[in-house]
Design a protein around this nucleic acid. Sequence first.
DNA 1: CACAGGCGCGTCACTAAGTGACGCATAAGT
DNA 2: ACTTATGCGTCACTTAGTGACGCGCCTGTG
Lengths: 354, 354
Amino acid sequence: MSDFLRRLTLLGLIPRRPQWEGAAAVARPSAGRAPTGKTSAAALLEQLQARGFATNLRAVQRDLVYLDKLFPELEHDGQRAGGRGWWWRADTQVQQLPALDPAMALSFVMARELLDPLLPPPLAQRLVPYYAAAERVLADAGAPGWTAWRERVRVIPEGQPLCPAPIEPAVMGVVQTALLEGWRFRGRYQPRERDLAEYVFNPLGLVFRARVVYLVATLWDYPDPRHFALHRFTQADLLDVAATPPPGFDFDAYLASGTFDYVTADGAPQRVELRMSEAAAAHLEETPLSADQCITAEPQSPGWLRVSATLRETEQLVWWLRGFADQVEILAPPALRARLIADARGLAERYGLS
Amino acid sequence: MSDFLRRLTLLGLIPRRPQWEGAAAVARPSAGRAPTGKTSAAALLEQLQARGFATNLRAVQRDLVYLDKLFPELEHDGQRAGGRGWWWRADTQVQQLPALDPAMALSFVMARELLDPLLPPPLAQRLVPYYAAAERVLADAGAPGWTAWRERVRVIPEGQPLCPAPIEPAVMGVVQTALLEGWRFRGRYQPRERDLAEYVFNPLGLVFRARVVYLVATLWDYPDPRHFALHRFTQADLLDVAATPPPGFDFDAYLASGTFDYVTADGAPQRVELRMSEAAAAHLEETPLSADQCITAEPQSPGWLRVSATLRETEQLVWWLRGFADQVEILAPPALRARLIADARGLAERYGLS
DNA sequence: CACAGGCGCGTCACTAAGTGACGCATAAGT
DNA sequence: ACTTATGCGTCACTTAGTGACGCGCCTGTG
């Protein structure tokens, strides 16, 4: 096989050093798994051979020193018995094939604006090299003398901006590896109203809700799944014990059980009928509530429209409806109407109107 | 310079064919600009030399045929006087250096879940190759016999899901190029209440709001900026006329002028005081409203808290406060309190409670 | 503390591959 | 039909990678 392709593949096999690992830090000395964040020439040889390259150890070693001269971002440690370790510096710029074109670069910049308030910092952090690559492309593409691209794009955020919860990057890393590769881990967790304690977590899944990330897990060998906010962990260390989901565990069923108030009554979609002011309903013509949404004029009252759509009665829907205040009246289903009437009563009382 | 590096750079200089261009479609025969979506050997030579490679045309040609054999995704058209055109197929998988690691891959998958309802389809479309790359990485990383990663992550969306407005991909491409490189364009636009018409647009910027993308532009040589929803364009064609922002135009000032009801009264942050039920305020401890947020107990009423923070009085804030219904009472500033009281009155009337 | 095993690396002759120069073939525009 | 710019085949030449071998260093172990 070709020289060029072998080296390119080799470069692709070298891992990037995780941001939360210090350059000199030695990965935890876990028995079975290879330490993350670096590879050896022997391991690379094996992976290359698995991809069909007929090569040998000496060639890989030669390639590595050759590439090391070309890429200053490529680093290695001293000579060790287990073989030299090779890795990309954590802050290496991403280079992509095919290169990022301005169209894709714009998508990245836009995505960043939309995501930054939503994604927890340790995850957002990891996309930074891509944003940087996108900014470089856009800076190149702009006509000279034309103001910077960022000056010509604005995102008006949808929700109220809130400061994101600070998650320990190392905790995020451990939880993620545990969940991805199926290991248990030992963690120190600070419950909301109790003392800091140490548990063994058997991870089942992650839930992102309202800018907070929750780990769903069982503790030790107890059967009942519980959830834990990631920003309440102070420490986490992988164990060499395989994770085992409790028999019959279904993630969606667990969510639907109401733990996260995702779905109120029951999950079945039903017909929702609204009376909305024209101003409030204006944007529904552009971005409908559902594929079967139907907007008709209200014959008796000019300036008002009748909107109906098939929707699931979620907390989000209630929040969204409340946002319109008196610009919307819920006609059906009755349970939803009753809920909004209760709100109205409560509000009147709160401000001493009744 | 090295052989390997030159070829790698060369690959990076070859553009990806835009998705909205047919494989055989010839780019618009605009005079000054090179057609997008492909390059010639001569152009590549020039770019390589600009990057410090001492090379010649023949070498570039040889490299191209060499790489063509290695990468089936690399395509070219027949021999033409202007030089052969070279490009990556639109659906080429992205390959990155350093490779996407599972941690970054997770960020991409999460980002997709959060973005898909927010980003207009033609922009979201462009990130698909990256999502695909991330899914490949995660599929490799998972322990065998462990259920798929997607089954272990859920995002509970924040807003009410709405169907995104369908933007013509070619329109998005033209608007973007015009804005990025500074050209005017001719477009057919369907205003909300008037007939379809053709205008010459002098683009100034893009605004993303509530899942709709707006182009801010002046028409012909009129001085006043206006905004146009991208999904209302039926066609757009680049012109070879440079775009010129009207003298003194300031994008932020235009937005603040209230065109998009971004900021209500004035933009200055002010102290907001709230009385909230403990349940409603619970998440503010995790994700504060502002850095200086302050939560204290309400002495008279158990189960209630006093929250104060310095905020800008935006439409988003009002929507957010309405979402809590009677679980929050606005104490200050008075204008905001008056607004919520008016809402409560309106609601009581709407449901015939008063 | 000495030993063994891995691994990195220097070196050799050999072989494969890229280089520069030249000329002809080919397609688009005049 | 002519011009021009580009692609491409081919030559001897030069550079760079290959396979094989052995030395020495580092590490972990007895």
